[in-house]
Design a protein around this nucleic acid. Structure first.
Lengths: 197, 197
DNA sequence: GAATGGTTTAACCAAATGGTTAATTTTTGA
DNA sequence: TCAAAAATTAACCATTTGGTTAAACCATTC
């Protein structure tokens, strides 16, 4: 079952970068965690920057899931949003540190370059889908971009603010999991009230 | 009129820490920006940690505004939320980098200690206010903690995701300002639909 | 079994970084 | 006016950090 050295490095780098961010991460720390010599890191990935970019790109895809399949389905707009909320909260639950990692990275030069890689389908598909639904009288009038940002907000923010939420509401880890679990239904209820005529 | 050296340092430290975070910030950079010698930083604030904590505490108060006045007012629950959304979006507009700074800081040991300083009035007051309103038949049934997190999400997240939002929607800086400007009304409309019977 | 080429390591290096020291300049107040 | 105190600086220092080098290790193959 042995992992290749490259896999061990990527796994270790993922852990460290996600926890510490680019500046906080140490090459030595990654090497230790991978159980290898520090020089070997530079043998596989030439520099800290290169290694970071590899991880960042990988996590970027988690944060901006592909939604083409969703968009193309012939179901009501609200149903599409429901499916997105369910799927996205699930993905985030399985990758709870990704939001902080991406949001932090996006504010740094190392991450800024990746912004261009965001699949345009997400925003364009959402806005297009909204207007089509609106023409059918399926949904009330809102600003679609504001709505999209709101949906993303309600899904992503809890993971960013997790330490705050846990402190303020005195949740233990288990309670927080339950909170996230319950969130999908609650958010969908909000969206129904916001959107249905 | 001239600023005191201490003021110059705090201003410079604020700029650098907000932009770079704890790990990314350099004492030399702060000294340069303040137009002083690096040793003088340590003369006024013993260590990077101490200086950071001073800034963090200050920004913390911006991120968790005092809401006692709001809570005590004898107005409908929804009106209180409206006032909060208006006031909070305004504060954040004037301090657009604070959310990222706080969220990032809160994930690091240097910032974790500050979690205890969050004014309990925010959460407790919100939940209490909700149940009182609910007993009066003023609002529909929701999970108050979920609602609080949602309100915070919709206000804060746009500032965290600003680079992403701008890229995806091709907004320039001015357009983004207008987007934030319009957001208060939009969010309040959502909350009305969510809460009013 | 030696040549070969990829893999791994120990030792090293230069630059950067937070922090200190000792001396100098400026301010204060008696 | 002048000495004590506060503010400021240049020069250092020890440690950390990303990165390199040269040698050793190891599997393959001819």
């Amino acid at each position: 079952m042995e992992q290749s050295t490259e896999e061990k490095i990527l796994l270790a780098a993922e852990e460290v970068f996600l926890r510490e961010g680019y500046d906080g991460a140490r090459m030595q720390q990654i090497a230790d965690r991978a159980g290898i010599n520090k020089a070997l890191l530079h043998y596989y990935f030439r520099s800290k920057d290169k290694l970071f970019q590899t991880i960042f790109e990988q996590k970027f895809r988690t944060f901006f899931p592909k939604v083409e399949g969703l968009i193309r389905q012939d179901i009501p707009f609200l149903q599409k949003i429901y499916l997105f909320v369910d799927a996205y909260l699930k993905i985030l639950s399985e990758n709870p540190y990704v939001p902080h990692f991406i949001i932090h990275g996006i504010h740094k030069p190392e991450g800024k370059a990746f912004l261009k890689q965001i699949p345009p389908t997400l925003a364009a598909g959402f806005v297009g889908g909204y207007y089509a639904a609106q023409a059918r009288g399926e949904v009330r009038e809102v600003q679609p971009v504001q709505l999209l940002v709101s949906v993303m907000s309600m899904c992503v923010f809890p993971f960013l603010a997790k330490p705050i939420i846990r402190e303020v509401t005195a949740m233990d880890e288990e309670a927080f999991q339950a909170f996230i679990q319950a969130r999908a239904e609650e958010v969908k209820r909000y969206l129904e009230r916001i959107l249905l005529p």
